[in-house]
Design a protein around this nucleic acid. Structure first.
Ligand SMILES: [Mn+2]
Ligand SMILES: [Mn+2]
Ligand SMILES: [Zn+2]
Ligand SMILES: [Zn+2]
Lengths: 136, 136
DNA sequence: CTATGTAAAGATAATGATTCTCTTTTAGAA
DNA sequence: TTCTAAAAGAGAATCATTATCTTTACATAG
């Protein structure tokens, strides 16, 4: 269940570059952009090429090891948390936070099991929640 | 409630370019990209500048006349339908279709009125539904 | 353990959607 | 009609991402 196994399982070679990209994703842990990841990775691996990072991210997404997070900016963001979950988007700071809630998932799931969408087979869903973060 | 009024209301000048961009959005009617819009607009308005189209789209989004549709591609898409609604994303063709359902909205709304998210004030939400379109 | 083939990394150029800058035109108020 | 700020037009610039090409190194077999 660790990265090594995951790469093996997907038929990908285990390389230090791939490992450090995964580490970056989990350490940064806030839906980082490629740029964020490159910055992190360069600390430990100053000679890594940006192209390598992009290629690693691409292949990880293709193999289902990472997911892209859609935003309304032209910079792609990534995450390694693959379970179903939703996102809180701050209108002001553009921060993104995860929101998990089994109960809500079940409610929506249940709704779709009763009311099928014509000519469409649902594979997955996520709720985008827009608003503003308030100080606690 | 027409475009003229909307532009006036927002303090924007009424120009043929702005009108034709709006027309494009509503005629194309499937979450078109800037490129789609430019293509449409050039038919009737061959000398319009791409920069103008981008500027018009930007200001319309800023003023709340249009909305951006988030995708996992690096091409932005736009829509003029502003009521709350959700999107069906086809994993295969990348087609996007609107999905409206008051009942579902109410269920989710109701859920959030009972279970507040800590430190976050919800302004709006949309459900992204991924899957595949099937022939009827 | 070593050799070998192939997948991956590195360097750097190219791409392409979008934005910027600067000049010219025009909507719309007076 | 005149005037001026706002908007349009042209084209260069930006910059995230991809592509190309060469070099390196994982991983398997011998
Ligand atoms: Mn691009
Ligand atoms: Mn860009
Ligand atoms: Zn997430
Ligand atoms: Zn829509």
């Amino acid at each position: 269940m660790n990265i090594h196994h995951k790469l093996k399982e997907k038929g990908l070679k285990i390389t230090p570059q791939r490992l450090v990209v995964m580490e970056a994703i989990f350490q940064l842990n806030n839906h980082p952009s490629a740029e964020n990841i490159i910055e992190y990775v360069k600390e430990k691996f100053p000679n890594i090429s940006v192209a390598t990072v992009y290629k690693v991210l691409d292949i990880f997404v293709e193999k289902g090891i990472l997911k892209k997070v859609k935003t309304d900016k032209d910079v792609m963001r990534y995450e390694g948390y693959l379970e179903r979950h939703h996102h809180l988007f701050c209108d002001e700071t553009h921060q993104i936070k995860d929101f998990h809630n089994k109960e809500l998932d079940a409610i929506i799931q249940n709704y779709f099991s009763k009311y099928k969408i014509k000519d469409f087979e649902i594979k997955d869903f996520q709720l985008n929640i827009n608003g503003v973060f308030k100080a606690s």
